[in-house]
């Protein structure tokens, strides 16, 4: 555990909590892609199946349970409790275009051809692109609420910090996981355009809106 890894995890946790609280307090999930949230729930479910088979640390176990629990709570708020506020007309990204190729890739490129390892690999690949329905929704409506941009910023920061974590681990532990690194780089790149808008607009007190 290094400082990049820990702050990355905390940034990820902050993102998840920000989104849950935003929906809960406003009693609305307007502007939030339910499809991205379903993909994240699928990511955590397929990755954390090892909760049942191995114990790494109390930190590891409790964070996994919190992440997966919050993911399902978010999906529940969007599709059940506050369903009337869900903006399905703008949440039109075709998730099968992500899930099917990612599933195929997980079968072809993995560390070990076993069910748990293929599901873990699937979760890594899927996480790298799971935010696309949300970014697509923002590009369609042309705007995002400021609190939604804070959520996205924390998610992007988490991924960027994990890249520093892997550089650290490579130098000090001689450890690297090529699957996680390549997927992590892809995921971070997807946020770059958003980071630019966040820094040039949101941090200067303006609402994030895209030119028509």
């Amino acid at each position: 555990m290094n400082v990049f890894r820990l702050t990355g995890d905390l940034s990820h946790l902050a993102a998840i909590i920000i989104l849950l609280l935003k929906i809960w307090k406003s009693r609305s999930c307007a502007g939030i892609s339910g499809k991205s949230q379903i993909l994240f729930a699928l990511v955590f479910t397929t990755r954390y199946l090892d909760l049942l088979t191995s114990f790494i640390s109390l930190y590891n176990t409790s964070m996994k349970i919190i992440y997966v629990g919050c993911a399902y709570a978010t999906v529940y708020l969007i599709y059940a409790k506050f369903r009337a506020t869900y903006d399905g007309n703008h949440d039109t990204f075709r998730v099968e275009f992500l899930v099917v190729p990612v599933g195929g890739l997980a079968f072809l490129v993995n560390h070990d051809f076993s069910p748990l390892e293929i599901l873990w690999t699937f979760s890594i690949y899927l996480e790298s692109v799971a935010i696309l329905p949300q970014l697509f929704m923002i590009s369609k409506t042309g705007e995002a609420e400021t609190i939604t941009t804070h959520y996205l910023f924390c998610l992007g920061v988490y991924r960027a910090l994990y890249l520093f974590n892997w550089i650290w681990r490579f130098y000090f532990e001689g450890f690297f996981d090529m699957i996680a690194i390549v997927a992590g780089v892809v995921q971070t790149i997807l946020y770059c355009d958003f980071f630019y808008l966040y820094i040039t607009k949101v941090l200067k007190g303006k609402k994030l809106s895209l030119p028509a």
């Binding site: 890894r5 995890d9 990820h12 090892d50 191995s54 790494i56 640390s57 590891n60 964070m63 996994k64 992440y67 560390h111 070990d112 390892e117 873990w120 690999t121 994990y162 974590n165 450890f175 996981d177 090529m178 699957i179 996680a180």
Partner: peptide
């Protein structure tokens, strides 16, 4: 042996 995946990470 085959490279191990980063199971200690989240």
């Amino acid at each position: 042996g085959p490279q191990k995946s980063t199971k200690d990470e989240l």
